[in-house]
């Protein structure tokens, strides 16, 4: 599935990439990167949601970068600048490349998906299940969004679409107790993975945040290592509020990673660059569409290249 990811991501990001490219085009033929060009580049990075901090840092690197010029190649080419920026992005992002799956014997591996409303948790649950099914794993999907209208039905459709086992509560509005029973069920079924979908919640609602801790606590009663992965699902169109999201969710339940969705749109999701740097969290995957296989593992170089429209 990784084959089409780069292409997809690139199409998704091409709009932003064009913009960045334009900023660099004006540089061609000049030996020095003057301040106005650097400002322009900074603006373009900011427009990709990298945030002012990260953008300024990258531009500073660019400002201090010594471009190697030869007799034949006296000008700083667009390509050269782009590679400097790409290298800088890669330096930050490379540590975030990490696989979501392992061959751990501690089964079932529990994956908890959390995030603000509408970020793409349920869809991502379905997509992860699909990835696992391709690896011939036995998967249970549990519906712990006991709040939103038709949330259970939505997930159930993903379960049947991916031929996963599906677990939902009976009349229970307590997400933690549904999660507990779901793990019991997964153990009984000897499943390899249990994917727990939760209700969307804003990170400043303490009552709802506490519910997340409770889910983790209750699951840990059955297996102290569970949930093995606690993943925040971020909307690719999000701006700097993603910092508050990751910070608060991390403080609440110690995240193990992030997934960023909707990179098939015009949004660039550049905020993950500073998030990756600040929180040292892996980026397990990126969502690039609404179909079942529109999720792919995160590759730093591919992402940076796609962002900068480099071949």
């Amino acid at each position: 599935m990784a084959f089409n990811w780069f292409k997809k991501l690139k199409t998704g990001l091409s709009k932003s990439a064009q913009k960045v490219e334009k900023a660099f085009t004006s540089v061609i033929g000049k030996k020095k990167l003057n301040e106005s060009i650097l400002t322009e580049i900074e603006d373009q990075l900011i427009s990709s949601d990298l945030g002012v901090n990260a953008s300024v840092k990258i531009v500073d690197k660019l400002r201090n970068h010594k471009f190697e010029l030869t007799q034949k190649n006296k000008d700083i080419s667009k390509e050269m600048i782009l590679h400097v920026v790409k290298d800088e992005l890669n330096k930050i992002l490379i540590n975030s490349e990490q696989s979501l799956f392992n061959d751990n014997n501690d089964k079932p591996q529990v994956i908890l998906l959390i995030g603000v409303n509408g970020s793409g948790k349920t869809t991502t649950a379905g997509k992860i299940a699909s990835m696992l099914k391709e690896k011939n794993k036995k998967v249970v999907i549990a519906a712990c969004d006991t709040f939103r209208a038709a949330a259970v039905e939505q997930l159930e459709k993903w379960a049947s679409r991916t031929k996963s086992l599906f677990f939902k509560g009976t009349n229970s509005t307590d997400a933690a107790s549904v999660a507990f029973k779901a793990l019991e069920y997964s153990i009984k079924e000897k499943a390899d993975y249990l994917i727990v979908d939760t209700a969307g919640r804003l990170q400043n609602k303490s009552g709802l945040m506490d519910e997340l801790s409770k889910i983790c606590r209750v699951i840990a009663k059955l297996n102290p290592n569970a949930p093995h992965n606690k993943i925040v699902v971020l909307d690719g169109t999000v701006g700097q509020n993603a910092h508050s999201q990751v910070k608060n969710f991390h403080e609440q339940i110690q995240l193990t990673g992030m997934i960023i969705t909707k990179l098939d749109g015009s949004a660039k999701g550049g905020v993950i660059i500073s998030l990756a740097e600040q929180f040292k969290l892996p980026i397990f995957a990126v969502g690039v569409g609404e179909k079942v296989d529109d999720l792919d593992i995160f590759k730093a170089d591919d992402y940076s290249k796609a962002l900068l429209n480099l071949e």
Binding site: D49, T237, Q240
Partner: peptide, 15 residues
């Protein structure tokens, strides 16, 4: 539109 939207707000509004 989501009030948490970032820079893409202009693209969304325009499109």
């Amino acid at each position: 539109a989501d009030s948490m939207t970032g820079q893409d707000a202009v693209n969304t509004a325009k499109a």
